[in-house]
Write a protein that binds this DNA or RNA. Structure first.
Lengths: 200, 200, 200, 200
DNA sequence: AATGAATGAGTGTTCATTCAT
DNA sequence: AATGAATGAACACTCATTCAT
């Protein structure tokens, strides 16, 4: 077995300058990923693009994987907020539509980045912290699903996982096909989701 | 820009022994991928596992990416055959079910391998050859879809791509969740597919 | 805690060329140590001095520490043989003299190298293999000490350890003072050893 | 060739607070050395342990080696005083015993630190200052040796160097073996020293 | 054809040292 | 004077690929 890498940020930047440096590094990492893919994603390139030294990068992240993990975390932040907002809508159908819209919007905003982070997320041992985040999303979905009539034989858990997979699969694929029309994609994903749930 | 790598096998194995060697190398590559992931997938490890020298490996494949490409190709062979057989079924609904069964069966047979090859496939410039294979599948799907009443506003092309994405997303996710019950998964994918098509 | 490094050679060279490469690398490592000290002892420098690539070095040694360990092992080989030969002398006093001569000769042959390897030996977790080697020496010494009248209150173990320390301390220091006269040094070490044992 | 580093403390701490800071830094350095060895001995770790910033550390020491040198200097201070006191004893034999006791006590107080500083001392170009300190010790030893009948063929210089080496070798080794009984070690070192001098 | 030793560019990471605040 | 963020040269180690045997 290989040793599990440290994925927690190394130091919380106390000074304003340091926080800004972290932000710059993360954005540089995102751009490198988008421009050169996983193969071209290395710490020296990120540091150079960020206009800082490698040393600075390692002041804030204990290793490459921790940088990736932070990027995944940052990337999911907005998504989770939009999802939570959508889940609060009173009508279940509207809530689901809103959650789909959040996923679609998130993916189409930076499709390449989203796809690569998905891949990396499945590779990294993100630990409790990320599990919590995922669980949070899962819970939101479960709450909404509890308000619809699920078809016989489907548990909320399984249905949640499937919907997750359907939405991610469709938006990833749309992203890789170069789609940019969010409205159209939204409709199709709704077809699949509501069809799956028998709410068509 | 980096030069696009040569992905065609270096020599057509005219002799039976050579074909056998190629087979052994490919299976070794598959097992390394499954056991060690993309990070542990390197030519020296594959050659050692295959019981041949690196030199021999490079006799049959011009580079690492060509090896990966051949693996993707091999991996899709059976899937395409089963898909084609299913597409020949007279009833459109049965044909779709059969195609889903092929996809589900393929993924659950070697879930880790299937997932990693999906990732690599999206990274490699597979060229005409693979495009043809994908187009073949797309055509099969189009033919079947031509025999159902597509909902308004959906082209066969788009619907095909979406179904592809739905199925792949669901089976990938099921694979990574450790599901092994093909029948159950089959039902759920059918829900999504027929739901999407309005055939529920 | 830091992970204990792998200190065993990576592969036993099967071909003659490979064995020669290993020999060349070890001698280059020795010369780098002598010329630049521990601070200048790095794998790139060793490889360059050896006239091979770093890659070759890592074919045979899993890491820098393994290289050092192999050097320690090689360095002790001749010493152990000479010690064993001396221990076989029938007269205990002659045996001790012979063992001192072996230690003195060993140290004066390559004084800087011997000193630095002593330092590294104390730092590395050499494991059973080396413990055996040291135990072998200790056993030789014990056997010889069993044939002399030890002063009251001295166990063979303690006496052995002390003699070891006396000899090593004196020859190390002589080496670092630049002494080259083995005969003179031999006499003085004998003074200390026989004096310690009350055999003056 | 590399330039010889500046080993003198950067500023004479005129203020009491500065002197205290220096003391704290030195003790932190000692503890880091003991706890993490030479490999873990770095200026950032020392500063953190000392509770000061690296910047402050560099206010008082022009570089890492200067810090080490100061530590060596501090470490020898007490030893030299005790040695000088012992050398003033009227009976030569008692003086030697006292000097041995000083060395043994010094080593057993902080065995790991003593050993590592010995190693570093042999690596650093300590310059006149330290030479003087060593010479001071050597002189003390010479004065005492002048009061005993040296065996034929031994100069006071050589004898002094040998005794130094014997004592250091024995106490270093005892330290690394984990010995803690100062009285026992004292007896054995005396055996060696007086035996060497023919005063048994 | 096969072998496997050899290559070396590339990458992750550390740490002594500097300097803006 | 003090801080600690930033620097970047240096180094351990990997692995795709080549080539002498």
């Amino acid at each position: 077995m290989s040793k599990t890498p440290d994925l927690k940020p190394r130091k919380s930047p106390t000074q304003a300058r340091a926080a800004e440096t972290v932000r710059i590094i993360l954005e540089a990492a995102a751009r490198i990923l988008e421009a050169r893919g996983l193969a071209g994603f290395n710490t020296n390139a990120v540091a150079e693009r960020a206009g800082v030294s490698v040393g600075s990068l390692y002041q804030y992240f204990p290793g490459k994987d921790a940088l990736t993990a932070a990027l995944i975390q940052r990337d999911g932040e907005v998504l989770r907020e939009e999802m939570a907002a959508a889940a609060r809508l009173p009508m279940a159908r509207a809530a689901l539509s809103g959650m789909i819209a959040a996923a679609v919007g998130h993916q189409l905003r930076r499709p390449i980045l989203a796809r690569l982070l998905d891949i990396e997320e499945s590779r990294l041992p993100l630990g409790e912290q990320q599990d919590e985040k995922t669980k949070e999303l899962q819970d939101l979905l479960d709450q909404v699903l509890a308000r619809v009539d699920l078809p016989a034989g489907l548990s909320a858990d399984t249905a949640g996982a499937d919907l997750f997979a359907i939405v991610r699969g469709m938006v990833d694929h749309a992203g890789s096909r170069g789609e940019v029309d969010a409205t159209d994609l939204q409709h199709r994903v709704e077809r699949a989701v509501f069809g799956y749930l028998g709410l068509a």
